Amino acid sequence: HNLTITQGKLFFHYNPKLCLSEIHKMEEVSGTKGRQERNDIALKTNGDQASCENELLKFSYIRTSFDKILLRWEPYWPPDFRDLLGFMLFYKEAPYQNVTEFDGQDACGSNSWTVVDIDPPLRSNDPKSQNHPGWLMRGLKPWTQYAIFVKTLVTFSDERRTYGAKSDIIYVQTDATNPSVPLDPISVSNSSSQIILKWKPPSDPNGNITHYLVFWERQAEDSELFELDYCLKGLKLPSRTWSPPFESEDSQKHNQSEYEDSAGECCSCPKTDSQILKELEESSFRKTFEDYLHNVVFVPRKTSSGTGAEDPRPSRKRRSLGDVGNVTVAVPTVAAFPNTSSTSVPTSPEEHRPFEKVVNKESLVISGLRHFTGYRIELQACNQDTPEERCSVAAYVSARTMPEAKADDIVGPVTHEIFENNVVHLMWQEPKEPNGLIVLYEVSYRRYGDEELHLCVSRKHFALERGCRLRGLSPGNYSVRIRATSLAGNGSWTEPTYFYVTDYLDVPSNIA
Rank of each mutant, 00 (worst) to 15 (best):
R483F: 01
K233P: 14
E362I: 12
H254T: 12
S239E: 09
L235P: 06
P431W: 00
K460V: 14
E290P: 05
N255S: 09
Y500I: 08
R447L: 11
R469V: 09
N326G: 01
G368F: 07
P244Y: 13
A381F: 01
L437K: 09
E452S: 03
L228D: 11
V439S: 07
R483H: 04
Y448H: 10
A220G: 14
D222M: 07
E282A: 13
H454S: 02
P338R: 11
V358R: 07
T307L: 12
D222N: 13
Y259K: 13
K287C: 11
P434T: 05
R240P: 14
P338V: 09
R483K: 12
V501Q: 03
E389C: 06
H416D: 01
C456N: 01
S342A: 14
N383A: 09
L237A: 10
F462S: 04
Y441Q: 01
S367H: 05
E227N: 12
G412F: 09
H352C: 11
S344C: 06
W216H: 03
P314I: 01
S458A: 08
N295P: 14
R390P: 08
E389W: 13
R319F: 07
Y498L: 06
E281W: 02
G467A: 04
D323E: 11
S474R: 04
N295R: 10
E351Q: 04
H416P: 10
R240I: 10
C269D: 08
S479P: 00
H425S: 13
L379R: 00
S274F: 01
A220S: 12
K302G: 01
G472T: 06
I209Y: 02
S283G: 07
H425A: 14
L369P: 01
R313S: 10
I438R: 01
V334R: 12
Y292D: 08
S367R: 09
S344G: 04
N255M: 13
T347E: 12
H461D: 14
V359N: 09
G467L: 03
N477V: 02
H461C: 10
Q275P: 07
F226W: 03
F355Q: 07
L232G: 12
E310V: 03
S274H: 12
L237M: 09
C266W: 13
K432V: 06
E420Q: 10
D311T: 14
A407K: 06
T241E: 02
K357F: 14
E281L: 11
D222R: 10
F337D: 07
V414F: 03
T502Q: 06
D503W: 13
P244E: 11
G322A: 13
Y375L: 06
N339T: 08
H416Q: 09
E452F: 14
E224Y: 14
D409K: 09
R400M: 07
S304G: 12
V299Q: 12
V457P: 00
H454I: 13
Y448R: 14
P354V: 06
Y230C: 10
R446S: 02
V439K: 15
S486D: 01
T386V: 03
P349C: 12
R481N: 05
S458H: 04
P312M: 09
Y500H: 13
S320R: 13
T333D: 11
R471A: 15
I438Q: 02
P403H: 02
Y230Q: 12
V397D: 03
P244G: 12
Y292W: 06
T307E: 14
V334N: 10
